[in-house]
Design a protein around this nucleic acid. Sequence first.
DNA 1: ATGTCTTTGTGAACGCGTGCACAAAGATGG
DNA 2: CCATCTTTGTGCACGCGTTCACAAAGACAT
Lengths: 253, 253
Amino acid sequence: MATGRTHRPASRSRGIPEATVARLPLYLRALTGLSERSVPTVSSEELAAAAGVNSAKLRKDFSYLGSYGTRGVGYDVEYLVYQISRELGLTQDWPVVIVGIGNLGAALANYGGFASRGFRVAALIDADPAMAGKPVAGIPVQHADELEKIVSDNGVSIGVIATPAGAAQPVCDRLVAAGVTSILNFAPTVLTVPDGVDVRKVDLSIELQILAFHEQRKAGEEAANQAAHPTAARRDDSAEQGPDGDVPAVMPA
Amino acid sequence: MATGRTHRPASRSRGIPEATVARLPLYLRALTGLSERSVPTVSSEELAAAAGVNSAKLRKDFSYLGSYGTRGVGYDVEYLVYQISRELGLTQDWPVVIVGIGNLGAALANYGGFASRGFRVAALIDADPAMAGKPVAGIPVQHADELEKIVSDNGVSIGVIATPAGAAQPVCDRLVAAGVTSILNFAPTVLTVPDGVDVRKVDLSIELQILAFHEQRKAGEEAANQAAHPTAARRDDSAEQGPDGDVPAVMPA
DNA sequence: ATGTCTTTGTGAACGCGTGCACAAAGATGG
DNA sequence: CCATCTTTGTGCACGCGTTCACAAAGACAT
Ligand SMILES: NC(=O)c1ccc[n+]([C@@H]2O[C@H](COP(=O)([O-])OP(=O)(O)OC[C@H]3O[C@@H](n4cnc5c(N)ncnc54)[C@H](O)[C@@H]3O)[C@@H](O)[C@H]2O)c1
Ligand SMILES: NC(=O)c1ccc[n+]([C@@H]2O[C@H](COP(=O)([O-])OP(=O)(O)OC[C@H]3O[C@@H](n4cnc5c(N)ncnc54)[C@H](O)[C@@H]3O)[C@@H](O)[C@H]2O)c1
């Protein structure tokens, strides 16, 4: 679900499995909450519950970082916060550019959770000349012509793309050419990038479709179990499709 | 990475593996593009390239749906669009409510990609009395007091949460109690839900942290390979941490 | 009809991720 | 100093997901 293309084995980076890396932010968030409430230590059991994962999994995850726990006691909250932050690279701060300041881009710019974790919005970039100079979230929008210069001057290595789908690949190419090596893509397109560049995508539409699949399945099972309960039959419900759907579709030529 | 809690074996639903389900929307998007350009058939190789996946994986994915291809030719685009749409439950439309109409919620409400795939915004809900009645994306915002009635009256089974983190769990509980069985959560919290309810989350902050991890790793490798190239040394760069980081941190008590 | 050529569908091998279950480590109390 | 109790760290087994590689299926030409 990362790196756009044939990528490396997708596997562990310096011994830390990708799946573990993806959970570290989750642990960090839970730990930050405990830290704010001045809780000194947590057991793997408690922390796992707070993060919504299995405690054995959490312990194994932490074991990749080192032996930071104390048997019979648990983990020191502050220490662990620091270790995970360091491992994730959050002890330095990362300048980020957002490209495409429309509905979504503006919402992202206004998002407080950005700065809270070492990420700093270095610039907002949009192709619309009418937007240039207008401040969004206190930051003046700059024109897309300036993209290369902005990335270069600020040493930006992380770019966020919130343009329409059609513009995403060209924008991506320019970002990469300018030196960006990590991209978070909100546009519904597959981005192609050179080796060494990481791409992660966030796609609302895909998430909804996955939910719809399970929703349909639940409805199907329900209908199958209780073989008759037309509870105010929702929607048209055309073709209740049997165990394995034969379908009234046009077949290929 | 779905279902909030201990969940069922996370495995296949009706024979279709979860990983496959997550890719079907990707294929569907690629196919829709081909369909609009009136391309009649595609090979697994071509389609896989368009979707950014391995062709063997794509063929195996499709094999779970049935034998819809023709050897020597490929897949019929229109037919496949229909089959995948049906499998994902997109032939019916799903009423969706969005709760929390702030920066993000408003952006979501304005998002066109919603309606394009069988999802219909049935209502916008916010707790702020000042917002009640004000139209966003042409839909009047309704007060949170009406939540249960809205869900019930519209037969809503999918809810989107875009409230602040603190409000997410209570809102979630109310949605579930009112009959919602699928939730897409944008708030940075772990939601706890009863069995039978699916939760998927979208967390910008987590995505960025994962990118930062890899970014740091790249920087580290680079610094390790070419043992000296202070190319206008980006940022303060404190503690270049050796192969295995010893750290100047306060140790636990 | 027969042969050739393309492309699917899948058996099999492999690797990653998950979770169980337990030995070892260390805290705590006597 | 020893016994007990708690909690970590991990060996191990298992299952899901990915990928290779190839036999079979069918199109198409002759
Ligand atoms: N709004 C959402 O909730 C939402 C959700 C999921 C995905 N998306 C996706 O995010 C993207 C943005 O959505 P949106 O609703 O903000 O759209 P939008 O039309 O409101 O904003 C797009 C912005 O990008 C700018 N732009 C266009 N081409 C550009 C270029 N080449 N360089 C720089 N800027 C450029 C436009 O001027 C505009 O300001 C779309 O791809 C959309 O599909 C949006
Ligand atoms: N803005 C972003 O780009 C972004 C990105 C990632 C995550 N998030 C998360 O999404 C959520 C919303 O972000 P935002 O920027 O839109 O915040 P916001 O403050 O602009 O909007 C929150 C909205 O929720 C409403 N609300 C509060 N309590 C409610 C309740 N109990 N019931 C119904 N509505 C309620 C508020 O009235 C407000 O309108 C936050 O949890 C944030 O962390 C936002």
